[in-house]
Design a protein around this nucleic acid. Structure first.
Lengths: 109, 109
DNA sequence: CATGATATGTAGACAGTCAAGGTATAAGAG
DNA sequence: CTCTTATACCTTGACTGTCTACATATCATG
């Protein structure tokens, strides 16, 4: 993690994963890479955080998965957003925006 | 809490408390009120979150406290920032900014 | 054939927040 | 004079989520 406060990830990991999957199906490893890339190397999601998150999201019905062959010709579990997941993502984004705005108001004093 | 994802608080609570104390000493109850006010009613810090956080920050030497008489003529434990706390606040703000920017990059795709 | 990148996953530890409750004082309403 | 509301402190126990570290396996490169 390029950032020293891992706690900041808490509550935003689902958002990051859902947003990444909204741009198309990915396997776990690829999701982590994409987040790292699109966050400009700042957010490096650890595997021990990512896989439990994916399983949690799948239990909640926000993502679904299937085994497929990856680009490299290897088996990988590919995750994609469900319709519920899409709706949920919209609400997560809204909550994040509200919360980030609230923090900034406090910081402005 | 006016926001449905309590996890978002994690990692930002210390920041909120330190920032509030940077504007002058307060007792616990007053800190919660001030955060609620300056966040425009969005962030309502529960006492069960606040007091452990204050004790944690005091253990770390970022805040100090003493018993004083409050405005209402009652005894209250008044917290204030230490010099270390001030420095730490600056770094917390910087980390928050970086992290919030990173999230926004991911959301922009 | 060893190493590093790809790929999935689990186990155990740990931290932080939450809901709920406990204690107590002061002020104002009835 | 008693009830309620606001002020003010704090703890407990449950729960969730992330972390480090580990275990496993394939493929490509050197």
């Amino acid at each position: 993690m390029s950032i020293k406060k891992p706690d900041l990830l808490q509550g935003t990991l689902d958002l990051l994963v859902l947003k990444t999957l909204a741009q198309g199906p990915h396997h776990g490893y690829g999701i982590a890479q994409k987040i790292l890339l699109s966050s400009r190397q700042i957010i490096d999601v650890q595997q021990g955080s990512l896989y439990p998150a994916l399983h949690r999201l799948e239990r909640k019905g926000l993502v679904k998965s299937e085994w497929r062959e990856s680009d490299a010709g290897r088996m990988a579990r590919v995750y994609s957003l469900t319709r519920t997941g899409h709706k949920h993502l919209a609400s997560e984004i809204e909550q994040w925006s509200r919360y980030a705005a609230a923090i900034n108001w406090v910081l402005e004093g």
